[in-house]
Design a protein around this nucleic acid. Structure first.
Lengths: 191, 191
DNA sequence: AGCCTGTCTTTCCGATGGAAAGATTCCGCT
DNA sequence: AGCGGAATCTTTCCATCGGAAAGACAGGCT
């Protein structure tokens, strides 16, 4: 018997879908989203652009897959951070770290105009991550507001950093800047 | 004598550059940046796409103009807000208001991959706005960190709102949400 | 063996961004 | 006046892109 490959090797290529996705992320990292074409991704994978269309439908479908993978990776990173420390702040640092470690995913995720924002898988992954970020639906408004404040802060910081909109005065280590800036977050509003 | 038109009507069209810019913003507002082509903008203006190329060089040049105008409008809005209230928080609200009143500008501004991020005019407008946001270069680190915290918070909030990444629990008025969330910003760190 | 579904290629189309060259209008200079 | 050149816009052309449609091909099922 042929020892069954890990997830069972499908048809011709092996796992074209995964390969295309990987090369898409690679291309976006190198060229940026705007400059990354379906054909370029297909070229890197050694296939025709129609092969990509078969697996993802259209360009939006390909980017939807990237965004979905991004939300999953983000969720995993945040979960890991929460598990490794009891410091609330370090989860925010992990968020910024994600934006730097996975710039392609991050860019695509926050440009819904590029993908199918109503894709079921995408929505599920997004919802999971959202729950991680500002607690479950049971939390009271104040708790949610704090979560949103924290998420907004690190998200804004991450995007502004990527766009070089931050003053050089605070140094060049985004993670340190995050710790510095997050200090201004008040965790216990008493009004 | 023909009463001199406002800023003096130049050559053929009148003021093609301004008209193209206006229609570009309009198109982006309606279709999104990704779906807005140079040709579409030219079409709306009643001109060939090459005419747009003459004034802006390429697509990136057109979007550079949009981003530059965006930074100028943002600067004006923030200045006006600072003048009309002594409440620091309301300036942040004005920032979010800008992102809602001028979605096209806002979108383009924070996607440097789409335009010429080293354009002199762009850089100048961006620097002016930056000065408005976290004070002049003379401020001490703590002051700057607070400015960055505040800007990050409202910027993150604005983008997350636009992408529908905020929990519905806090209502549907982004300005009110801003006030609610900004409460969690500590203005006087004493450590 | 023979069909059938899943996978990928070939081919074609309209639209796009950009380059190049031509036409037209205006403006300064004499 | 009018002439020449610069500014403005159009025409034309090309490579590339996203997408649709139909064909080729492989592996599994009966």
């Amino acid at each position: 018997m042929p020892k069954s490959e890990p997830p069972s090797k499908p048809y011709h290529h092996g796992d074209l879908r995964a390969a295309l996705l990987r090369n898409a992320v690679e291309a976006i990292t190198e060229l940026g989203v705007a400059e990354t074409s379906v054909r370029e991704v297909a070229r890197r994978t050694g296939v025709t652009h129609a092969a990509a269309a078969y697996h993802f439908g259209d360009r939006g479908g390909l980017l939807t897959a990237v965004a979905t993978e991004g939300y999953r990776k983000l969720g995993a990173a945040l979960t890991a951070a929460q598990a490794s420390t009891e410091n609330f702040l370090e989860v925010g640092v992990a968020y910024v770290a994600f934006s730097i470690d996975h710039p392609a995913h991050f860019d695509v995720m926050y440009q819904p105009g590029l993908y199918h924002h109503d894709d079921p898988d995408l929505l599920a992954a997004k919802a999971d991550t959202a729950t991680l970020l500002y607690g479950s639906r049971e939390a009271d408004d104040r708790q949610v507001a704090l979560g949103v404040a924290a998420w907004s802060l690190v998200h804004g910081l991450a995007t502004l950093w990527r766009n070089e909109n931050l003053p050089a005065q605070l140094g060049d280590d985004p993670l340190e800047i995050t710790r510095l800036v997050a200090h201004h977050l008040r965790v216990d509003p008493r009004d």
